[in-house]
């Protein structure tokens, strides 16, 4: 279970996240939606221990990230498209992470196969396309066979086949019981994928609930979103 309770983060006078509370449950894909600058990435960074909350809590399985006994086995995360040294190969990058986490190196080969990068495993990451880097980030997130996934705009840079592959993959993870929290500002990409949505704007919660509720009566997710945010449909 991924949960935020009254989470607040300020940068000087700017309130990036404001009393935000929501949950992402096991077995479900939860879409974390909002326009650019809504506070999604800041929230995810606090959940992953990269930033500190000003107030409130962001917990995974009841613990702050820094207090998790097995962080990489609890949650896998994709935050940025490029967190690699360009001079290292994908295999070398994952080997470093596996060694640091105490994970057998055979798992490196497995995750490369899962994200379909086996053929390019010995290519330097500096030569990778954005889509390949996204897949490599996902491979790193899967190294510890985590029970939950936190993904920040994971479809960025993926081609249509890649997006379809990602959808299938995340649905399979959720059906195995993982909690998947997926941030996006691309509504069309997540509409077919998510079970629940958490919509924020200016750091505040606008809506939290199931997609089924939101789209009851044949309303499209996009239309329901724009009605809630009161914004022009810029984020399609």
């Amino acid at each position: 279970m991924i949960a935020c309770r009254s989470l607040t983060k300020t940068f000087g006078r700017h309130r990036a996240v404001d009393q935000l509370s929501f949950e992402a449950c096991p077995g479900k894909v939860t879409g974390f939606l909002g326009r650019n600058g809504a506070g999604k990435t800041t929230t995810l960074r606090i959940l992953l221990g990269l930033a500190r909350p000003t107030y409130g809590s962001a917990l995974i399985d009841g613990h702050a990230y820094a207090d998790l006994r097995d962080p990489i086995g609890t949650v896998g995360a994709v935050l940025e498209a490029s967190t690699f040294h360009p001079g290292r190969t994908a295999h070398a990058h994952l080997t470093v992470l596996a060694l640091a986490a105490g994970i057998p190196l055979v798992r490196v080969v497995e995750v490369l196969r899962i994200v379909e990068l086996t053929a390019d495993a010995d290519m330097r990451v500096g030569h990778y396309s954005l889509g390949m880097r996204q897949r490599l980030s996902l491979a790193a997130a899967l190294l510890g066979k985590p029970r939950a996934l936190i993904l920040d705009e994971p479809a960025n840079g993926l081609d249509p086949q890649g997006i379809r592959w990602l959808r299938t993959f995340l649905r399979a993870r959720a059906s195995e019981g993982s909690a998947v929290l997926l941030s996006s500002h691309m509504l069309s990409e997540v509409a077919e994928l998510v079970d629940n949505v958490v919509i924020i704007d200016h750091g505040r919660l606008l809506h939290s609930g199931s997609v089924r509720e939101m789209t009851a009566g044949g309303v499209r997710l996009e239309d329901a979103y724009f009605e809630l945010t009161g914004s022009a449909p810029e984020a399609r």
């Binding site: 992953l48 820094a66 940025e80 967190t83 360009p86 992470l97 640091a100 790193a140």
Partner: peptide, 14 residues
Amino acid sequence: RHRTIVPAILITPR
């Protein structure tokens, strides 16, 4: 510079 600090901290918050 290369942002490798992010996966490093995700694996080892200490």
